[in-house]
Design a protein around this nucleic acid. Structure first.
Length: 558
RNA sequence: GCUCCCGUAGUUUAAUGGAUAAAACCUCGGUUUGCGGUACCGGAACUCCAGGUUCGACUCCUGGCGGGAGCACCA
């Protein structure tokens, strides 16, 4: 539709013999202004040396087949025909889960790497938030038609692991003993604190342990390490299932390490000596110099990441684009990494994109992953699930024991709070606000969806069948929003902006609730009831698909 | 000190250079016995400062001020 309008305007401009007018056609900020608006007259007026409103009138006189009006300083507003909306409403219901999908990335293969927790350490709320962002980005590219590969890169070697294994030894954990991921978290905290302390003997011991783990030279250490890794990864898997992420493949630092080292040594022109280490001179490109191999010859994050890019293609085949989504602490490193990669793997570098998102803070203060003083994602979700369940019990007693439902709502609250704003910015997670279940929140969207499911059931009982046979003369306001869903999905993926979906859904839900307050749907005596039911069904489908893009479930009752 | 990101109602967030800066929380005042009031309607309230570019600036440029992240062997 937008293209049709643009084409019509271009035609008129040719008639008026004006060229190179970079006009836009977009939705006006206020829906009352029309469905589309163009600033063409304002731009063209400059070239023509005329008053914008005058130019607008000339253009409008030549535009055929549209209901248009001139407003403000010279905007041309377009109102779409009634049938257009009815057709879109019908389409949305027919297309079901396909509604809103588009072809922006059809035929492309996209890798999306995210979450990236470290085995032996706690999976904390930071991982939960970064997972929400990555999962939504994955779903956005998938919705755009891309063959989407979800990837997870986990740091199973390095000093943090050495700290944890040292702690395991102190706690007398053995490969035969049964211990949990939580015990590992304690072990890590123990080791990390000890390493930071003054005791040089301990430091030396942990460093030696790190080397042993990396080289796998000590059977006893290997056994303890392997068991710890297994426990930790199994624990992560339960979390991925809980949040609804299904990774296609997992990569580990233990694999990337040796390959990274080899890669660095194979490119002596790119990675040069610096204080006994191998470094990349980022300064020559306005960046920082980074160490790729430390003075002990061990690969750093940067070297591993370099190898990882190649490993992904080796295992999953070639991609057209590779997204790596992390918190923005990594952003600067990644710039250097990309530069270095442009010498080693220029073709991979060209399609690698790092998306550094802001961090989420709790209203109670900042969390830290270094001190061991972290909030476990599991605990966080449990706590919010408890509150959600209490709320359900109050409102819908018969669903009060449904723990799974409570968890869906808790995750909806968390994910919405994470994705409601621009992901580049830091956000604050206010538990009370996210759980208020009112206004702009995940549960509000879920509630609206459930409410529609309920009213449609009532309508069916009353003998109202959703259909587009009898149409009210004027489209309902909500119809003017419904057809935009696909455009929103497209913009959101192009801008890497899940918040555009969140924002849209909130507006849609609000408009529906207004519609619902004004119009009775389950009333067979109303000649418009069938169409109203169809509109309601369309809203439910749109909410469901939109929530899916945010990684949020849409229960039918709550 | 240098680099990058960011400063919008009391609070949390929106706004491809466009119309009266938009929602939600909070607050104040209301809602037709009509389908889920976890809803709806209305009021009050905002662009850090100073310049510049533009018909038009929250948006772009310059300089301040304030916050976050990073600045060589952690990731």
């Amino acid at each position: 539709m937008k293209q049709t309008i643009e084409k019509a305007i271009t035609g008129v401009l040719q008639e008026l013999e004006v060229a190179n007018v970079p006009f836009t056609v977009e939705h006006p900020a206020d829906i009352a202004h029309g469905d589309y608006a163009s600033n063409v007259a304002l731009i063209a007026a400059k070239q023509l040396g005329k008053n914008p409103r005058e130019v607008a009138e000339e253009i409008v006189a030549k535009l055929e087949g549209f209901e248009v009006s001139i407003a403000g300083p010279g905007f041309i507003n377009f109102n779409l025909p009634r049938d257009f909306f009815a057709q879109k409403v019908s389409e949305s219901v027919e297309q079901k889960e396909q509604w809103g999908t588009h072809d922006a990335l059809t035929g492309k293969t996209y890798f999306v790497e995210y979450t990236d927790p470290n085995p032996f350490k706690e999976f904390h709320i930071g991982h939960l938030f970064t997972n929400s962002v990555g999962e939504s980005l994955s779903r956005l590219v998938q919705f755009a038609g891309a063959d989407t590969k979800r990837l997870c890169y986990q740091g199973d070697v390095g000093m943090h692991v050495a700290n944890a294994v040292w702690g395991m030894q102190q706690m007398s954990l053995t490969p035969e003993s049964s211990f949990t991921a939580r015990d590992l978290g304690k072990a890590y905290a123990l080791g990390a604190t000890a390493y930071k302390g003054e005791d040089e003997v301990v430091k030396t011991a942990i460093k030696a342990l790190n080397k042993k783990i990396y080289e796998r030279t000590d059977e006893e250490v290997n056994a303890l390490y392997d068991k710890g890794r297994e426990v930790s990864l199994a624990y992560f898997q339960t979390i991925y299932e809980m949040v609804g992420t299904d990774f296609d493949d997992y990569f580990f630092e233990s694999e990337a390490g040796p390959k990274g080292k080899e890669l660095v040594l194979d490119h002596p022109d790119t990675f040069v000596d610096g204080d006994g280490a191998k470094v990349f001179k980022g300064e020559e490109y306005g960046l920082h110099t980074r160490v790729f191999l430390n003075s002990e010859g061990l690969p750093t994050y940067e070297a591993k990441e370099l190898a990882l890019a190649k490993m992904k293609e080796d295992r999953l085949g070639a991609s057209d684009h590779s997204i790596i989504s992390t918190a923005n602490e990594i952003t600067e490193y990644f710039k250097v990494l990309k530069k270095a990669m442009s010498f080693v793997y220029p073709e991979l570098e060209a399609k690698t994109e790092h998306i550094g998102h802001g961090t989420v803070r709790l209203t109670t203060g900042k969390m830290s992953s270094r001190t061991g003083d972290v909030i476990a994602a599991i605990d966080f979700v449990e706590e919010i699930t408890d509150t959600a369940q209490a709320r359900i019990k109050e409102a819908t007693p018969e669903l009060g024991e449904d723990r799974q439902l409570a968890q869906q709502i808790a995750l909806g609250a968390i994910k919405y709070a994470t994705l409601k704003g621009n992901i580049l910015q830091d956000t604050v997670f206010d538990k009370e606000e996210a759980l208020s279940f009112e206004g702009a929140s995940g549960p509000y969207l879920q509630y609206t969806h459930a409410r529609i499911c309920s009213v449609l059931k009532k309508a069916a009982e009353a003998g109202v069948t959703p259909a587009a046979e009898v149409l009210p003369g004027q489209p309902y306001t909500i119809e003017r929003l419904l057809y935009r869903f696909q455009e929103v999905a497209r913009e959101a993926v192009e801008d890497r902006a899940p918040h555009k979906v969140a924002q849209y859904l909130t507006e849609l839900a609000g408009a529906f609730n207004t519609f619902y307050a004004q119009e009775k749907i389950a009333d067979a005596t109303d000649s418009n009831a069938s169409y109203k039911a169809l509109v309601a069904q369309s809203v439910a489908q749109t909410l469901k698909n939109g929530l899916w893009l945010l990684g949020i479930e849409a229960p039918e009752r709550m």
